[in-house]
Design a protein around this nucleic acid. Structure first.
Lengths: 337, 337
DNA sequence: CCCGTGTCTGGAAGCGCTCCCATCCCCCGG
DNA sequence: CCGGGGGATGGGAGCGCTTCCAGACACGGG
């Protein structure tokens, strides 16, 4: 164990010495570079095995200016955000893609001031080869940091207001439109929208998709009722809606959590779902399947979001020039609409 | 953006030059080391600000032999394991504790061969200052790697069979015993156990706790019925149990997922819960609250597990000598028992 | 007045690796 | 037989930082 034995790992010099070659040759042999005779290459390999040599990644990083790591930075104020099923899926996708690209994954939470400082330092100290940035709010200080970063940055989900050069996003507008159109196709005419935070791009864009669909159908869009993507905010918005517009016959919720909250309030108010009020959510998380009734929702490919974001970053790190990507959504019809 | 401008970050030499001091002094000033006059210290600070200097973390790492990062390695064969609510919580806890210790979090999945190779390389190349190892199976190749590692290793959950020097675990035996005792205290005498994988320490130890409680009460323990901690395996085990021992009047499930699976099968078989059969789970994940009926379960402090594991690792990295830790569990009584 | 003590200071030697480049050698064509 | 092309080789200069150490200087007591 580290403590007791501060004896150091073998170095490349020792390998070279044991193999009877120079350090340059040993280095080339190790990296499968040309200009090494078969004989010496084998001698080096033997020495490596005998010594149990593994190149020191820090030294290599310093010399090559490549750390071999990519950071996934998540903004937000809740330190539990990694436990959010959404981000958990993103992590799964990103982790897989980075493994393929032989990059390590660093997870950074920019929730507290301290967290943000650490992220800024990481960005500026070249502690990683690139960064994936997610869940930026309006005026998020991370946006400025990203601009000043010296390494490639890919956004997972567009930041509010800006269209960065490299991002991967889900077709929020299209998904919202499809969901709303579906509700309209069921004959509903008083379709309300329960919005997520309007200082997030997803919150805004989903409302916009809803509004576009309503206008296109010649219906009056309801004004946005803002929540914060939580179950309780969905419930609160639904309750308020029921007071203001008791005639509502359909609800498009900005995500599944809010949709489930709406379901709960509707049930409490004695409205039948979907008979009296149809409800559609967004995300297609596990909760949508176990809710009562199961939630019709817009499925978004969350793992793919993580995967493609990571792939795009890996491409940038490798000097390629990928283009921004928008992933499709898909309506999943269940019992609630 | 990285691509277009390969212009390099300012270096410490440039700071020193601008401040009119030697690199040594600049370095000391930066690290708040002694032996720097007030005057020069301020000069350095000014230069740092003017240049927007941030120390290169790789170079620092090479010189200090400290990377400033800790790795969380999760074993297992399912690449989606990070999406498991259990690990998601562990990550939340670990992330918070590492932030306090000013260590970055690297997430490593040792699922595929490739993943394991990468982990091994990380362990041996000093790519991190320490490692947290979780979810090891019996004969897990990671165990050997850990022994040979030159950096501190902390186990989150004991590996099967061995008792490592440093670990944080949950009181699986105690929790299982308490759950079983509770079922017995309800007057149940034919209490069965639905086990998790018996090649994991948690699977084994929970069964042992169950058996101990049964024996202590003078009851016959049921033989273990092995599942793999999934809902469907719980359902399957419950179905088989119902065939073999239709007289069963209580079930201790190795975790909530399996407990929920058991609930489903019991409902399908027309058994009332808890009247005919009482069910207790383990974990106290969200699913236990929304199941029908809500699941009585053994709560384990998952975030704390992650937090304490990370703290212990941070202590080791800082040259301290912490001692292994077992976190308490707590029975949460709901409707299912 | 001298020397010991203590604070500052900068030179220089690493940390372990990559990679440029000068050198050397072998072989082939002229 | 000689010049030249090309692969193999090792020396050495970095990468950007920390840290050891020796020297410079100031101060106070004997």
């Amino acid at each position: 164990m580290a403590q007791d034995a501060p004896r150091r790992q073998p170095t490349l010099d020792q390998v070279a010495e044991l193999a009877g070659v120079s350090r340059s040759v040993a280095s080339r042999a190790l990296n499968n570079a040309p200009h090494v005779s078969r004989l010496k290459r084998e001698a080096v390999e033997r020495a490596v095995r005998r010594l149990g040599y593994v190149p020191n990644s820090t030294a290599r990083a310093l010399a090559t200016r490549q750390t071999g790591a990519a950071a996934l930075v998540v903004s937000g104020e809740d330190p539990s955000i990694f436990a959010d099923p959404f981000f958990a899926q993103v992590i799964v996708g990103a982790s897989a893609a980075l493994e393929e690209a032989d990059l390590h994954l660093m997870l950074c939470l920019a929730a507290s001031d301290r967290g943000r400082r650490r992220v800024e330092e990481l960005l500026r100290s070249n502690g990683a080869d690139g960064v994936m940035l997610m869940a930026l709010r309006e005026d998020d200080p991370l946006a400025r940091m990203a601009e000043e970063a010296t390494m490639p940055v890919v956004f997972g989900g567009r930041p509010v207001g800006a269209v960065p050069r490299w991002y991967v996003d889900v077709d929020n507008a299209g998904g919202a439109r499809e969901a709303t159109e579906y509700l309209i196709s069921l004959g509903r005419t008083r379709v309300a929208a329960l919005c997520g935070r309007l200082d997030t791009e997803a919150g805004r864009t989903r409302y916009r998709g809803y509004r576009d669909a309503m206008l296109a159908a010649g219906l009056d869009p309801f004004p946005p009722r803002e929540g914060d993507f939580t179950e309780s905010s969905g419930a609160a918005a639904m309750a308020a809606l029921l007071t203001d517009r008791p005639d509502v016959d359909a609800v498009f919720a900005a995500n599944d959590n809010m949709g489930v909250g709406a379901l709960r309030v509707l049930r409490g108010a004695g409205r039948r779902v979907p008979d009296d009020v149809a409800v559609v959510g967004f995300d297609d998380l596990a909760v949508a399947q176990v809710s009562d009734p199961p939630l019709t929702t817009v499925h978004q490919p969350i793992q793919a979001l993580g995967r493609e974001t990571a792939r795009m970053l890996a491409a940038l790190v490798n000097g390629q020039n990928p283009t921004a990507l928008i992933l499709p959504t898909r309506l999943v019809v269940r019992a609630s609409a």
